[in-house]
Amino acid sequence: MRILGLALGLILGLAGPVLAFEVEEQRFYPGTGTRVLRIISTADLAVFTPYLLAFQQQRPDIGIDYTVTSSADLAAAIRDGAPFDLALSSAMDLQFQLANDGFARSYRSPITADLPDWARWRDLIFAFSAERAVVVVNAERIAGLPLPATRQELIALLRDHPQRFHGAVGTYDVRESGLGYLFATKETRSTDVYWRLAEVMGRLDPQLYCCSGQMIDDVATGRLAVAYNVLGSYAAERLARDSGGRVQILRMEDFENIMLRTAIIPRMAQQVEAAGALIDLLLETGLRTTADDWPLPPLGQSGGVDEAGFSPIRLGPALMVYLDPLNRRAFLAEWENAMEQR
C-alpha cells in the first residue's frame, strides 16, 4: 500500500503540474529576440491586441504568447503553477485570492507608485481598468415600453410583460463565470432587490452566458431583449453606437457595479522584468486622462468614485468571503433556486 502510494506520488510528481484549463484563444506574437512573455488573460484577443502591439513597439525584442481562458481556469492554472509570466483577469476576487495566498510576486515601479491606493494591493495586484456592469437592451424588442433606470423599474418591466420577455432575458451563469459570480455576490450585499430580480428573471426562462461578448451579440441580433449585468466596455459602447440605436446601454441609477481589471505577476513567472514593463504600460493607459482610443476604459476619477457616486469593488480580504466553498455552495443553491423555476 505504501509502495503503491509512493509510486503514485512519484508519477504525479514527475508528470508535473497538470495544466487543466480550457484555452479559448491563443496567439503568439514573435519578437526579434528569444525572450517570450507568456500572458494568461480573460480579455479577448480583439480587446487586447492593441496593448500587445503597443508593448512590442516599445520592446520589439520580446515575443508574446497570449492565452485567453476563463477567470476560474486562470486562477486554477496559476495555483497549479502553470508557467505564465503575467495573469490579467476581470475576476478581482480570484486575483485577490491568488495574491493573498502567496501566488503573486511583488512588483514596484514609479508608475505603480502613482497608482491610487484603491487600485492596488500590497504591490501584488494592480488595477488597470475600471469597467461597470450595465444593462443592454434591444430597442426594437422593447419598443413602446419605458426604458428602466433602476432595478425596481426593470423588475416591474419584466413582471408586467412576461410574454414579451420570456426566453429573451440574458445574464451571466454565475456558476461558470467568475465575473458574473462577483457581480452577483456584490449585488446581494449592495441592493436588496437582487433576489427579487433574480426570481423575476427565473420565471422568464433566462438565457445564461459565460461571457459578456456573446450576450451583447445576442442582444444585437435580437435574440435577447434585455441582457443584465453586461460588462460595459468600450467594445459594447461601440457596438451600441454602430447599431444605429437598436442596441442601447442602460446604466442603473440605484446601484452600479464597477469592476477593476487586475494584473498580477505569478510566483512562477520567469520574465518578471518584461511582465513588469507590460504592467507599467497597462497602468499608463489605466491612468490616462485623455480620451485615447484604447479598448478598455481608464481607472477614472481620483478616489475611485464615479460621477454617479459609485466606487469600484474594493480590493481587500472581503473579496474572499464568497470564494469560500461553503459560502459559494450556499449562494449558488439560492441562485439556482431563484433562476431555475421551470
Partner: peptide
C-alpha cells in the same frame, strides 16, 4: 462566512 468578518480585516493595512 459573514462579509463583515473579512471586510473588517483590512482596517489596519494591506494584510493577507
Amino acid at each position: 462566512l459573514p462579509y463583515s468578518a473579512f471586510s473588517m480585516l483590512d482596517a489596519i493595512g494591506e494584510d493577507r
